[in-house]
């Protein structure tokens, strides 16, 4: 597959992102608070943090970068291979990638240099509260 295959067009500079508030923002203008508020409003989604703990060239898949993260309060270790231009959203900083030059070439998106210690926005599905703890629920006539 060509190097551009699968580049998500969400990251193209100028792409319009609709927040959970209904507000429209260009992808390059997104801020940490936009993710936080949207996740809150969406219900069932929780903002989590994934810290970059190691960055290196992929051994198995040349051309890709292997990123090691520790995720959430449990500090779970997660490893992923991504193209060097793939942007991540760092808390309080904004878009960052292993290769800001490539990100700029392919997406036009300005990025910071991703570094070990960066804490990236990630979003998990929130576990539903246990039934015992459930308080008064609004009436759902069409519960499935």
């Amino acid at each position: 597959p060509g190097p551009a295959a699968g580049n998500p067009s969400h990251f193209m500079k100028g792409a319009i992102i609709q927040l959970a508030t209904g507000e429209l923002k260009r992808v390059e203008d997104l801020q940490t608070q936009d993710f936080v508020r949207s996740a809150e409003l969406s219900g069932g989604l929780k903002i989590d943090s994934s810290m970059v703990v190691d960055i290196r060239a992929s051994q198995q898949r040349p051309g890709l970068v292997t990123l090691h993260f520790t995720v959430g309060e449990q500090q779970s270790k997660v490893t992923i291979d991504v193209p060097p231009e793939h942007p991540f959203f760092v808390f309080g900083q904004g878009w960052s990638s292993y290769s800001p030059e490539r990100t700029a070439q392919l997406y036009g998106l300005a990025c910071h240099q991703m570094q070990v210690g960066d804490v990236c926005v990630s979003i998990t599905l929130q576990r539903p509260p246990s039934p015992q703890k459930a308080t008064a629920q609004p009436h759902h006539p069409q519960q499935r």
């Binding site: 067009s9 969400h10 100028g14 792409a15 979003i123």
Partner: peptide, 19 residues
């Protein structure tokens, strides 16, 4: 210009814990 709902970005963000 296409409009993407914000949650369509979620799969491209940093990984979450797999449990």
């Amino acid at each position: 210009v296409p409009v993407f709902p914000w949650h369509s970005l979620v799969p491209f963000l940093a990984p979450t814990q797999s449990d």
